[in-house]
């Protein structure tokens, strides 16, 4: 296993583990306010300190990991579920009107950064984690469609695909039975990258109030709450920020490591 993959996997596992453990245990009740203990710096009792309501930040970070992972994971799921079939269809009918419509549609969605989609959705339906998922998910669709199409196009020229066509298989069967398994490596690597971008986007949307709403803890929301108190208690801003950075860093390293590991050319180049 390469070094990037190892470090990335360890960092990501810690975050996922914290999120899973938070379902059954947190050091303190993350909603419990305790005003006499407010704004404590990190100490032996409250490892990451307390916020302006005296809530335990370590517990909030654990539960906040749940929100970040859930939003990013579902958003990647939306992108994959819609983007992969579109990419496969575009590649199977390369140069036809189907390909043209899908690719121009992709270009159009690309013109709407997830923040802009979130602004539109929030203006109409109000803020919330579900809207953040939809906004990030929509932006993921063209990403996966392009990656799938790009990978699939070269495969359609290969001999084993020709053999499948001669055997009478339909384009859709070939796409799902032969093309998809062969572009899976690409999609897994891209999935990791989009997952990390999803964590960043969720934090950004929650920070400006368009994502998860109180009392659901979210790392971005914690940073927004910390903004006015950053001079009094810097740990309020530093802890959630470092949590985001380490999570995204871990996922990016894992993505790089996976790409090196799964791409035979890079493996040969390394040895």
């Amino acid at each position: 296993m390469n070094r990037n993959l190892l470090i990335g996997a360890v960092l990501s596992s810690i975050v996922v583990l914290a999120a899973l453990v938070s379902f059954v245990w947190t050091p303190f009740d993350y909603t419990a306010m305790n005003i006499p203990d407010k704004l404590q710096s990190p100490n032996a009792v409250h490892w990451f300190g307390t916020d302006h309501f005296g809530r335990d930040i370590f517990s909030m970070i654990m539960v906040g990991a749940r929100t970040s992972i859930a939003v990013a994971l579902v958003a990647v799921g939306i992108g994959m579920a819609l983007g992969i079939p579109l990419g496969l269809a575009a590649a199977a009918r390369k140069g036809s009107w189907v390909d043209e419509v899908i690719m121009r549609g992709n270009d159009l969605v690309f013109a709407f950064p997830s923040l802009v989609i979130a602004i539109l959705i929030t203006a109409v339906f109000g803020a919330g984690a579900v809207n953040a998922i939809i906004a990030i998910g929509i932006f993921n669709i063209p990403v996966f469609a392009r990656i799938t199409r790009g990978g699939a196009l070269s495969l359609w020229e290969r001999e084993f695909i020709m053999a499948a066509r001669v055997a009478g298989k339909s384009a859709s069967r070939i796409s799902f039975e032969h093309i998809l398994p062969n572009v899976m490596n690409l999609l897994i690597v891209q999935g990791t990258i989009q997952f990390s971008l999803g964590i960043l986007a969720e934090a950004g949307l929650s920070y400006i109030g368009l994502g998860a709403q109180p009392p659901t803890p979210s790392w971005g929301r914690m940073l927004a709450d910390a903004q006015t108190m950053v001079s009094l208690a810097p740990h309020l801003a530093l802890v959630p920020g470092i949590a985001i950075v380490l999570t995204v860093l871990g996922l990016n390293l894992m993505g790089d490591g996976l790409r090196d590991h799964l791409d035979p050319r890079l493996r040969v180049a390394r040895t």
Binding site: S196, L200, A203, G204, Y207, G220, L223, A226, Q227, V230, S231, P234, A237, L238, P240, G241, I244, V245, L246, V248, L249, N252, L253
Partner: peptide
């Protein structure tokens, strides 16, 4: 650069305020 890509710009902004403004 790996670290730079992982840093949310709004958090970096808060850290900058803490250091250079406060």
């Amino acid at each position: 650069t790996q670290l730079g890509v992982a840093i949310p710009n709004f958090w970096f902004a808060m850290v900058m305020v803490l250091i250079f403004a406060i």
